[in-house]
Simulated scan of single mutants.
Amino acid sequence: MTTLAIIPAFNEAQAIGPVVGDIPEGLVDEVVVVNNASTDATKANARAAGATVVDEPQQGYGAACLRGIEYATTRKPDIVVFLDGDYSDHPDEMPRLVEPIAADEADFVVGSRIRGNTESGALLPQARVGNRFACSLMRRVWGAGYTDLGPFRAIRFSDLQALDMQDETFGWTIEMQIRALEAGLRVEEVPVSYRRGIGPSKITGTLSGTVKASAKILWTIGRMAATTRRRAPQLRERVDRVRTDAPTLEPKG
């Protein structure tokens, strides 16, 4: 079983070293930092910390994640983990996300900051309200049990490829969570810790970022709700086809 971590990073020169350094030794085979048009020393510091660096000149969280997936196709890992590059996630808690997949108990694991220990001021009020509203809409439309749109998540790589992710900006996380449900993946949510990241928040830390992210998330939910009956059978078929060709993970223990 092989695991690859993907870290989208835009101007995270101070944080990227600690993020890479705190990933548990031996858990991940390769750490990939996607340099998303940074204008500081993010790229150099990521390499100095031991990460592989790939560039994505088009700014956007989803665009950086898609570039990471493109790189992962050259490595063909069993599991891919996504986490943020500002040190707000706790990389040392990565086993919580990887182990259910390695034990064949889940296909997709989302780290919930709402259910975990969140440092005061780390998850701003607008983010909490947005999370709650988005999760309530997913519950109504798809019967989802999510409590968070947390960026810290792990998924079987073959299933991730089958999901055919598209979003290039703020709708990335919720698109993945909806597509996972539509594809019939075994979804699990685990509590994770969350702290104030190093440097200012690039989304919910500003009014414009909050408005843009909220609008994109609501638009994504509406668009996907209107097309779910057509898309869900296609995703299930893709997952079945990919799993037929992909090797089976051997459970731990």
Rank of each mutant, 00 (worst) to 15 (best):
R223N: 07
F152D: 03
E189Q: 15
R179A: 15
S208D: 14
S136F: 10
G222M: 05
G197W: 11
E182I: 05
L185C: 05
S158D: 15
T204A: 13
L163P: 00
Q177I: 10
K212L: 08
R153K: 15
G199R: 09
S136L: 09
I174F: 00
R186D: 14
S201L: 04
R186W: 08
M138P: 02
Q177S: 14
G145F: 02
I155D: 01
P200F: 00
K216I: 09
G171T: 04
I203D: 07
A225G: 09
W219Q: 08
R140Y: 11
D167G: 00
P200T: 02
R196N: 13
D164G: 12
G209A: 00
T204Q: 07
T147D: 13
T220H: 01
G143P: 01
G209T: 11
R223F: 07
L149Y: 01
R223Y: 09
T206F: 03
L207Q: 15
R186E: 13
F170M: 04
P191W: 14
A183N: 04
D159M: 12
R195C: 04
I221A: 02
G184Q: 13
A154C: 09
V211T: 07
L207R: 11
L218C: 06
P200M: 01
S214M: 07
L181N: 14
T210L: 11
I155K: 02
L181I: 12
A162R: 02
S136A: 14
T147V: 10
A162C: 06
A154V: 05
R186K: 11
V211M: 05
R156D: 12
I203Q: 02
I174A: 03
L137T: 07
I221N: 01
G199F: 14
G145S: 10
W142T: 01
G145K: 11
V187C: 14
A215S: 11
L218Y: 09
Q166I: 13
S136T: 03
K212G: 03
G205Y: 05
W142V: 07
D148E: 02
L149C: 06
G209Y: 10
A215G: 12
G143M: 08
E189D: 06
V190P: 04
I203P: 01
W219H: 10
R179Y: 15
A162D: 05
T220N: 00
L185N: 06
A225R: 05
G205Q: 10
S193M: 03
R195P: 00
R139A: 15
D159L: 09
Q166E: 15
D148P: 09
D167A: 15
M176D: 05
G205V: 03
W172V: 09
A213Y: 09
R186I: 09
L137S: 06
M224E: 10
A215P: 01
R186F: 04
M165R: 08
T169V: 12
F170N: 13
R196A: 07
